[in-house]
Nucleic acid binder design. Structure first.
Length: 479
RNA sequence: GGUCUCGUAGUAUAGCGGUUAGUACAUCGGGUUUUCAUCCCGACAAUGCGGGUUCGACUCCCGCCGAGAUCACCA
């Protein structure tokens, strides 16, 4: 089969964590089957339309590495890819329904409909518009909504994730096909578009599962085969049991990019949240995902969004890129994440800093706070020194003489390399008869005044002889 | 209220009639010459409840309970 999938967002704002999976899964599935992925913008609701939202959507997909074969920017044979530009197409299909007696113009005023609805609520019976179908229906013309004429019956179908489904006639109703403003509803537009575009698999959130019988009825009335339905379970908010939405503070996908989350990690996390291949593998490249993805292993229950695990995975990816592709590969990803002062130093120096600090990054933005002292003189904070748990038992004069001994020892190091520095530090340890915790804490704090830093010899090596000795001297004098 | 879906540790999951119920994140403890992190080792911790079917149920069936979705001229 020639697989064609699509991602069909409405341009109402940014793409957030809760809904990006309905772009990822169809992408993986299309690539796996050498099929096509279509991007279609569902902009039929003029009230919710947000200027610039389409750019945001495209931006997000590109960042995640999800390219599309047809759609905005790239074009294609089944355009236009904005629903607002396809109005005649919907009207054409709508007329077929009118001609076959399966759609009617509904002149009933909205207030009247509300009244029906209230009536049903009071009587505690389900509200079905088909029970209030108007007896006289006018010709369909602009300004009057067009409704589907339901023929209640049972439906059986298979959902690729949820399995065999069955519903009775009570779920079928006269849903609106074309709104009074002439724009189609989602319910109608997506069916027409998917048919015209040859879409074979529809992947969307489970919230559409309940509407599926109504869609089935429309496919039937239109004489269309329906595509494979793939219902994706919700991603749940960190607390409560509701699906993750903007109201729960669901961040936009690109917000994570700005924090220094790698697209590899984001993709990896989002896919594995609700899908796994049955093995114990955790880290997957995009290629592996394309290779191993399968619809039948998509989870049926909702999965809670866990930012902590995302960050853990990001750390894994940061290390993986460094270890497998080298320092430069990781460095290329760090643009914009360094503290401003770092720009006064050379790229080469920044790479050296990255090489010793990368394994403690959770997000790239950590560089901003974690590397300052490599690029500017740290602020002297003697309290930090004196109150350190290993140093507080020593007198100030003892600290001072230790620092002086350190300066003397390190000054004698002719070749300022990590190995030589480590040797010198080891000798110093023996000569001063101090524990590593005491001596090394002292030196570490004196050169960085940071809550933590990489291994001492590496830190000193990168800092360089001049800077290291100067900082030690400054502290020795100030104590 | 009708209809539909879901239910393994705090979280994400493995399991597909017989297992000491596995793994990862988180948490707690320990190790790797300081710190933070990485890495390694260890600990804690789960089959919603009740009936069946079966020699034997997390697994199959039924009921209950709990959670969610939907019932818009929004998608």
């Amino acid at each position: 089969m020639n697989v064609i999938t699509r991602f069909a967002p409405s341009p109402t704002g940014y793409i957030h964590i809760g809904n990006v999976r309905s772009a990822i899964y169809p992408y993986l599935f299309a690539r796996q089957n050498d099929g096509k992925m279509i991007l279609r913008i569902e902009d039929t609701d003029r009230e919710r339309y947000v200027e610039g939202a389409t750019d945001l959507i495209e931006d997000t997909l590109k960042w995640l590495g999800l390219d599309w074969d047809e759609g905005p920017i790239v074009g294609g044979d089944h355009g236009p890819y904005f629903q607002s530009e396809r109005l005649e197409i919907y009207h054409r299909w709508a007329r077929k329904l009118i001609e076959s007696g399966r759609a009617y113009a509904d002149p009933t005023p909205a207030e009247k409909i509300d009244e029906y609805r209230r009536e049903c609520t009071e009587k505690k019976v389900p509200f079905l518009y088909r029970n209030f179908r108007p007896t006289e229906t006018p010709e369909w013309e602009p300004g009057i909504p067009l409704r589907f004429k339901a023929e209640p019956k049972d439906y059986n179908w298979t959902d690729a994730v949820m399995g065999d489904m069955h519903t009775g006639p009570e779920v079928l109703d006269d849903i609106i096909l074309i709104k009074k403003d002439g724009y189609p509803t989602y319910n109608f537009a997506h069916i027409v578009d998917d048919a015209e575009m040859g879409v074979t698999h529809i992947m969307r959130g489970v919230e559409y599962l309940s509407s599926t019988p109504n869609y089935l009825a429309i496919y039937e009335a239109l004489g269309l085969e329906h595509p494979v339905f793939v219902s994706l379970p919700h991603i749940l908010a960190p607390t409560g049991n509701k699906k993750l939405g903007k109201r729960d503070g669901a961040k936009s996908v690109t917000e994570y990019r700005d924090d220094g989350v790698l697209p590899e990690a984001m993709l990896n996390y989002l896919v594995s949240l609700g899908w796994n291949d049955g093995t114990e593998q955790e880290i997957y490249t995009k290629e592996e995902l394309i290779d191993k993805f399968s619809l039948d292993k998509i989870q049926t229950s909702g999965a809670r969004y866990d930012e902590t695990k995302l960050y853990w995975m990001n750390g894994q990816w940061i290390r993986r890129i460094f270890d497998e592709q080298g320092c430069s590969a990781l460095y290329d990803r760090t643009e914009g994440f360094w503290p401003e002062v770092a720009m006064n130093s050379s790229e080469d120096y920044r790479k050296k800093v990255l090489a010793i600090i990368y394994d403690r990054l959770k997000v790239l933005a950590d560089l901003r706070e974690m590397t300052r002292y490599f690029f500017e003189e740290p602020k002297l904070d003697l309290d930090m020194l004196v109150n350190n748990k290993f140093l507080k038992k020593m007198s100030e004069s003892e600290l001072e003489s230790l620092l002086k001994a350190t300066v003397a020892k390190l000054t004698a190091v002719s070749d300022w390399t990590a190995d030589n520095l480590q040797n010198a530090l080891n000798e110093l340890l023996a000569e001063t008869d101090k524990k590593p915790a005491e001596l090394f804490s002292l030196i570490r704090i004196a050169v960085s005044f940071a809550p933590f830093s990489p291994a001492l010899n590496l830190t000193l090596e990168v800092l360089g002889r001049e800077t290291s000795l100067a900082r030690l001297n400054t502290v020795a004098r100030s104590i």
